[in-house]
């Protein structure tokens, strides 16, 4: 009985949160969109494994389809067509990720894209959105009422590990300096971005305040992604952020890349890396060119945020396990 009350309560709270979020964006003129979660196309990303399934038709034959890891590929198409600012609440799927208290292979994501916004504008929009849409029972929660921290990744790494990313641009030097701080040997030849992730996960993620929103901005440019690079001295970094609350990584944001040549080059590199890491492994390899880069020929300047709503619900209900906010926890 107790369990039934708890489950019904979670279902109700999720509904309230979603309608608050919809009201927030609707009242600001965003258009809610619904994009496919079953798709013939994928963005090639070596670090994300996808679920694939087989489309079958007696007349058309069969072909592989994918459950999307995020609605980005479709939302960006709508933006290129002139949809303006949009948002979507959708189911997403990620395969081959570790199971645990913060991960489920099927989860719900909120994505919102704001035209003519920088990633900095998205910080204040996100803080406003979280505060205004909070469940009544969560309004007093410290992660919402405390002053958020906004700091660059370089400052955070320097503060918590003593390593200066501005100086440690060389792969070998960075590896050696990181090994001086860590105890497990880093394999030689490990790329810069993996060394960075070791340092960041070990020293920064574990040390940040848990009672408030913490935005890490300006990620190293070595981490290849579709966020714009900074200008001048800032070009070593990309204009993106991730926000943490209560030790959970809650959302990320890019100032979206708009140059079709840069996007094309990105996909070439990502696809090569994907092939290298997956050939012979039996894991999903999407076809090489979904024509996705073409939509960037006339892509407006905008900023996009992706937020895990199961994690937000965890924070707002004080749950430490994602399975506590799912009516049907994933089990296999």
């Amino acid at each position: 009985m107790n369990n039934l009350i708890k489950k019904r309560d979670i279902a109700r709270l999720r509904g309230v949160l979603y309608s608050n979020i919809r009201r927030f964006f609707d009242s600001r003129g965003y258009l809610e969109v619904e994009t496919p979660i079953l798709s013939p196309d994928l963005i090639p990303e070596p670090t994300i494994d996808n679920f694939s399934t087989l489309f079958q038709n007696d007349f058309l034959g069969s072909r592989e389809l994918y459950l999307l890891p995020s609605p980005e590929i479709y939302i960006k198409r709508l933006i290129s067509e002139g949809f303006g600012s949009v948002y979507e609440i959708s189911k997403c799927f990620r395969n081959n990720e570790q199971m645990g208290r913060q991960h489920s292979p099927e989860f719900t994501m909120l994505e919102y894209y704001t035209m003519a916004f920088s990633e900095k504008d998205s910080v204040s929009l996100t803080v406003d959105m979280l505060r205004e849409t909070a469940l009544p029972s969560a309004r007093g929660a410290s992660f919402l009422s405390s002053e958020p921290v906004v700091m660059t990744v370089r400052d955070a790494v320097l503060k918590y590990s003593g390593l200066d990313l501005d100086v440690l641009q060389d792969e070998d030097e960075f590896r050696a300096a990181a090994f001086g701080k860590l105890s497990i040997k880093i394999p030689s030849g490990e790329p810069w971005d993996d060394v960075f992730n070791r340092v960041f996960c070990t020293f920064v993620e574990t040390a940040i305040p848990r009672d408030r929103l913490v935005f890490f901005t300006d990620y190293p440019a070595q981490i290849n992604c579709l966020a714009l690079r900074g200008e001048g001295d800032g070009s070593r970094y990309r204009r993106r952020w991730e926000v943490y609350a209560g030790g959970l990584e809650l959302a990320n944001c890019y100032a979206e890349e708009t140059d079709p040549e840069v996007v094309r080059d990105y996909y070439r590199k990502e696809y090569d890396a994907l092939l290298r890491s997956r050939e012979g492994s039996g894991r999903v390899i999407p076809k090489s060119d979904a024509g996705f880069a073409d939509i960037f020929s006339d892509f407006p300047s905008c900023s996009g945020v992706a937020m895990g709503l199961d994690r937000l619900l965890m924070l707002e209900t004080g749950s430490s396990d994602i399975n506590d906010v799912l009516l049907f926890p994933f089990s296999i």
Binding site: T47, E97, Q98, G100, D193, N197, T202, T206, C225
Partner: peptide
Amino acid sequence: KGAPFVVVEREFVNPGKGSAFVR
């Protein structure tokens, strides 16, 4: 580094763009 240690906590982490890690 040659000395025995006991694992007291283990957590899987997937940075936004990067390999999977175990902390």
